[in-house]
Design a protein around this nucleic acid. Structure first.
Length: 269
DNA sequence: CCGCCGCCCTGCTTGC
DNA sequence: TGCAAGCAGGGCGGCG
């Protein structure tokens, strides 16, 4: 499921292939996946040039020359894949942007949970999103402040995009394991050294996953359709019953904040 | 404001 | 063998 490292990898791939191209065609086959803003037609993006591609939290952001942006949330099974002129559509394609050179950007999602939005200039679409964990704004002190007084389990806080933006279930599990912290611990019960360990672990896990172009446990592929490599480096996620890489105890799975949670009872406290 | 919960959706895995 | 139930989960809206 695409989290920060996966979306960043996709965005970098798209930057290399579609920046500078002009949109020649838009085909929204499933309207709920790309609802047009009130009073705006999707056809209005035809003729616009793509001037940049980036990422905010788990969203891929295509900037158009008018200052508008295409903001895509891939949720679990969404894909953004660039296709050559005569390649057949990627399976499950619901939205297609055709470019002036005949290449296409396909937005595919078998489960149709993903969404693509057309954001108008100045629209504060990301106002509710928290700090980027790989930015200089994510300091240990800022993180300590976020946890202060909060009763919510630390894992639920990591998944809350209003605090730190971009962490999903896989990297929340992995960072908590690396920091040796039990996922259910109330945020306010973490000592400052533990919060600092977790801060380090979040940055470390995300950077290592980014180096390996993300995690492909089942669906994720990048803009070229290639799988990532971090699934081979996972310490706990999906490893039910297998030995903890640190202490050898079997990894357990519980449910926390409606999410499967993999962790080591022996060395995460 | 905060925390919790249900819903959306389909493909794959598991179990009888 | 075949079918049904269970599971995967990000974001959002509703509720207390």
């Amino acid at each position: 499921m695409p989290e920060l490292p996966e979306v960043e990898t996709i965005a970098r791939g798209l930057a290399a292939t579609i920046v500078g191209k002009r949109i020649a065609r838009v085909d929204v086959r499933l309207k709920k996946m790309a609802p047009a803003p009130p009073g705006v037609r999707w056809s209005s993006v035809v003729g616009e040039r793509v001037i940049g591609i980036g990422r905010r939290a788990k969203y891929a952001v295509l900037t158009l020359e008018s200052g508008r942006a295409l903001v895509t949330s891939l949720r679990m099974t969404g894909r953004l894949v660039v296709q050559r002129p005569h390649e057949t559509d990627y399976p499950g394609t619901h939205v297609v942007l055709g470019f002036d050179d005949g290449s296409r950007l396909s937005f595919a999602d078998v489960r149709t949970f993903g969404r693509m939005r057309l954001v108008l200039p100045g629209e504060p679409w990301d106002a509710e999103l928290g700090v980027e964990p790989l930015s200089t704004g994510f300091t240990p002190e800022a993180f300590i402040g976020m946890l202060r007084g909060r009763t919510t389990p630390i894992k639920a806080l990591l998944l809350d995009q209003r605090r730190v933006a971009g962490i999903g279930n896989i990297y929340a599990c992995e960072a908590l394991w690396e920091a040796r912290i039990r996922p259910s611990r109330p945020s306010r019960a973490l000592t400052k050294p533990a919060i600092r360990r977790l801060h380090n672990a979040i940055v470390d896990v995300l950077e290592r996953a980014l180096d390996l172009r993300g995690t492909s446990v089942d669906d994720y592929v990048d803009a070229e359709g290639l799988r990532g490599g971090f699934q081979n480096a996972l310490a706990v996620y999906g490893r039910l019953g297998e030995p903890c890489l640190r202490c050898g105890a079997p990894i357990v799975r519980t449910v926390l904040a409606q999410r499967g949670t993999w962790w080591c009872r022996a060395c995460q406290r």
